[in-house]
Simulated scan of single mutants.
Amino acid sequence: MAFCVAMLIASEFMPVSLLTPIANDLHATQGMAGQAISISGLFAVLASLFIAPISGRFDRRHVLMSMTVLLLVSLVLIALAPNFTMLMVARAFLGVAVGGFWSLSTATVLRLVPEDQVPKALGMIFMGNAIATAFAAPVGAYLGGVLGWRVVFGGLVPLVLINLIWQAKSLPSMPPRATIPMSRLFGLLKRRNVAIGMAAVMLTFAGAFSAFTYFRPFLESETGVNADMLSVLLLSLGLAGFVGTHFASTMLHRNHLYSLLRWLPLALAAVTLGLMELGHVFWGAAVMMFSWGALNAAIPVCWSTWLAREIQDEPESGGGLMVASIQLAIMFGGAFGGQLLDQITVAAPLAGGAGLLVLSALLIGNGARLRAPAQG
């Protein structure tokens, strides 16, 4: 499952490092190419909302393998896409796979391992995410420059095929159980702290992805990087994620959750603006990219902790709602940044993203709005 997560995340965000060649080859603007991130986000939202009620009728093993097959089909279609329309269709398939697999992953782990092994098992799942985040973009940028962007996506096909065979051999049968109705998931939004939390989640992730999706055109235009230099910068951003994750875990252990939720988006906004200011020189871009990667990686850890703390009575519904909110934010962020890029300048997506991050911090405030009311 961790291997599949790594493939899903690598496939979802690979266009970030290949935006320019994809746009050139398919005769699209870079802003249009960035919508490949948005379309997968849209379908991931739909999948995360509907997968639990639908999958409850089938063996969980077969459902997870179906999501992997969708991933495989999407990669083949992307590698062979003759035009922009086919690329978007393929990315829609990918979105369903991402939303469906992620939404079911935690509940599946709970069925696969003993209770005392759940934290370790979930850690393995998120390690697949961290590894893909660290290496997919730089490796994609380098190989895309050498072999072409189609080869990069095609190269993932045999890896996903191996993973599918591995799943068939290793995943046990998991017969269907009682499903969670949609009303319970959306009913959580009637809780004021949950509604505000999800709004803050969306602003935070939309701000981050408005900037992140369009780092390549900015770095090519303002910093003057080639494919090799871009790979180095993206690798530093990815590796910084391990630093940020460790930092967040340490601070959360000291009970600084609400301070982190407030100040991390502000710090990320400041670094994003710093990249705009210092990005004309390579060393400045490198420092800002490393800092950006560390701060950005710390944010999901904090929101996952908030989810576990404030929605203890409905963890599965809360998890589905969180996945949907994040993917909707990714879709909006990619679309928002793409419009700014096409209509204004290559730096506009960074400025727009920083603005959304600031709004998120203002909404969170001192954290009181995110706390469930005390039970009398």
Rank of each mutant, 00 (worst) to 15 (best):
I39L: 08
I311G: 03
L188D: 07
N193D: 15
D59H: 01
A28T: 03
A248R: 07
G154I: 06
T245G: 05
L203D: 07
E316V: 00
W263G: 06
G238T: 02
S236T: 12
L203V: 12
V281R: 15
A132I: 09
L94Q: 06
P315Y: 10
V160L: 06
S17V: 04
S17A: 08
A121F: 07
G95Y: 01
Q375I: 11
F212T: 00
P21Q: 12
Q312M: 02
M7Q: 06
G293C: 14
I125C: 01
L26W: 04
A200P: 15
M7W: 10
L261W: 05
L188P: 00
A141N: 10
F50N: 12
V63H: 09
V45N: 06
P114G: 06
A130Q: 08
A92K: 04
M65F: 02
E277D: 15
L159T: 10
T85N: 04
I311E: 02
T204Y: 07
G207H: 12
V281A: 08
R111G: 12
H62C: 09
L275V: 09
G34T: 02
A351I: 04
A132W: 11
G352T: 01
G318A: 11
A200H: 13
A81V: 06
M198V: 15
V63P: 13
P176K: 06
A368P: 14
E316C: 05
S231Y: 01
E277Q: 14
V287A: 10
V160Y: 00
C4H: 12
A130I: 00
P172I: 11
A130M: 01
N255H: 14
L112E: 03
I344P: 09
S291L: 09
S221E: 10
V73F: 08
A36Q: 04
F93L: 11
L266V: 15
I54N: 04
L273N: 07
F332D: 01
S236Q: 05
A308D: 05
F135E: 02
V63N: 03
A348N: 06
G187F: 11
R184M: 09
A23L: 01
V73T: 02
M32N: 03
T204E: 07
H246N: 14
L75P: 11
A374E: 07
G352N: 07
D59W: 13
S231G: 11
G333Y: 12
G197F: 15
A294T: 03
G274N: 08
A361R: 05
P138A: 09
V76A: 10
V243N: 05
Q117A: 10
L171W: 14
L143T: 05
A132L: 06
A199L: 03
E12N: 06
P172N: 08
P175Y: 12
K190P: 13
G41C: 05
Y214A: 03
D342G: 00
P300C: 09
M67T: 13
T345V: 08
L87C: 02
F205K: 14
R60Y: 02
P349A: 13
A200T: 00
G224S: 12
L161K: 11
R262N: 11
S231C: 07
F126K: 00
L278A: 15
R91G: 05
P373R: 03
N24A: 11
G334N: 08
G95E: 02
A351C: 02
M288H: 15
G337A: 11
A47P: 09
A347V: 12
T245C: 04
V157F: 05
V5Y: 09
A137T: 04
A211S: 13
G365A: 05
Q35H: 04
D342P: 01
H280A: 06
R216V: 14
